[in-house]
Write a protein that binds this DNA or RNA. Structure first.
Lengths: 126, 126
DNA sequence: CGGAATCCAACCCGATACTG
DNA sequence: CAGTATCGGGTTGGATTCCG
């Protein structure tokens, strides 16, 4: 069997294929910092420093890096106010808000199953 | 602007706190390999080698590592058939299936917004 | 204040070899 | 077939510094 060399049609890209665009995007987004940032922005627009306070434990560098990635992928919009001192605000775009809905599901899941998981760990950690 | 704290009921662990159990679990789960494994197991029970084929690009080591983590957290159940050659099967538990529902949402999101994101990238990548 | 760049330690993860 | 252990290069990511 010959591996297809031509592009898939846009709607058919598959997360399972390691080399697909879909997988690349999924990999970008499926990391804890990106998801926590999205969740934090769910409540509304935030400044850089507010975001850093909101997502406890994230470093300046990681926050910048993830915001750049999310901006490039069109998940957040970056607004610079040319004031002194500078003021930069981040907002979820429509795709970002759509993603946020499912991320919220993951957060809820974490809280709901906290007990289950604690118990499972006690069983596993002999 | 007032920071909203309404989501946190007292006594409920908070994802925002870097040192909370909830954050630890979220960080375990919020990585691409774990999520792709969960998605793969959504269709039903799979053997180790089937899982490795299903999640393209994952290494033997990463698969093992993530499965151990997921087993410890009670997301998957591991069944060893004492045959020769050995046969080990993995199945989602109830918490695992619940999580899978939201992961499915993320996968759908990826497909739905693939076009948006591609366009955003073209705009960003000057 | 927000961002970029640098340095460097810590770790991630793939490859490999070996076991039952 | 499934799993463990080890090794080492590559990447990650924190701390720091400087800039507009």
């Amino acid at each position: 069997m010959v591996t297809k060399r031509f592009r898939d049609s846009p709607g058919q890209a598959d997360l399972r294929r390691a080399d697909s665009l879909a997988r690349e995007i999924f990999s970008d987004v499926a990391n804890k910092w990106a998801l926590l940032i999205i969740e934090a922005l769910g409540a509304g627009t935030l400044r850089f420093s507010e975001l850093r306070d909101e997502v406890e434990g994230i470093s300046h560098k990681m926050l910048t890096q993830n915001l750049r990635m999310m901006e490039r992928n069109g998940l957040v919009e970056r607004t610079v106010h040319p004031t002194v001192p500078p003021r930069v605000e981040y907002t979820l775009t429509e795709p970002g808000r759509a993603l946020r809905a499912t991320v919220g599901g993951m957060c809820d899941w974490t809280h709901r199953y906290l007990g289950h998981i604690e118990a499972a760990r006690r069983r596993a950690d002999v």
